[in-house]
């Protein structure tokens, strides 16, 4: 069900760990299916000098985190800010549709970590992060029925194709 690249990153995840006294930390969690990711950044000269991750989640969540850290490592912040969840999924040669929904949150965690670094740098205080509750389709991703895999309307309460109840899935 997973691509070779996903399995390769799952089996040999890069950059696992924690940076003590990190310059920026970003945490996202999806309360629906339980994936959670934390990204730690070390910044030098406005560039990602080091990046580590910790992830609680399925095979694709771990592969996403690993791939994301490889993509971001060494990049200037301006460039790293342009990495999207879609880019990560593409680099992994695709993810199963339903995994796009919940486990493809790596870029969100990265963006939060960069924001966290910039806030600290500029002395900004931000209220507790709301984006942790964000769902994949709020980023313009498509939504699929978890039961029959047919594309559904965003926020639909039931699937037009199989009539499954989607209230809990959303």
């Amino acid at each position: 069900m997973y691509s070779k690249t996903v399995m390769e990153h799952f089996r040999n995840p890069r950059n696992v760990g924690v940076i003590e006294d990190a310059d920026g930390v970003g945490e996202v969690g999806n309360p629906l299916c339980g994936d959670m990711m934390t990204i730690y950044l070390r910044i030098a000269d406005e560039r990602i000098a080091d990046i580590k991750f910790q992830t609680f989640g399925c095979g694709s969540a771990i592969a996403v985190s690993s791939m994301l850290t490889e993509m971001a490592k060494g990049k200037p912040l301006a460039e790293a800010k342009r990495i999207t969840n879609r880019d990560v999924a593409a680099a992994l040669e695709g993810l199963p549709k339903n995994k796009l929904h919940c486990s493809n949150l790596g870029a969100d965690a990265l963006q939060l970590a960069i924001q966290n670094y910039e806030d600290r740098r500029d002395g900004r205080v931000r209220p507790a992060a709301v984006p942790a509750e964000k769902h994949a389709h709020e980023h313009g991703d498509k939504c699929y029925c978890p039961y029959c895999d047919v594309e559904t309307k965003k926020g639909a309460t039931s699937c037009d194709a199989c009539h499954a109840d989607l209230l809990e899935a959303h």
Binding site: L32, C33, D35, G57, S60, P146, A169
Partner: peptide
């Protein structure tokens, strides 16, 4: 797990 069963919960 929700991910493995595809139910997302």
């Amino acid at each position: 797990s929700a991910c493995a069963t595809g139910s997302l919960r």
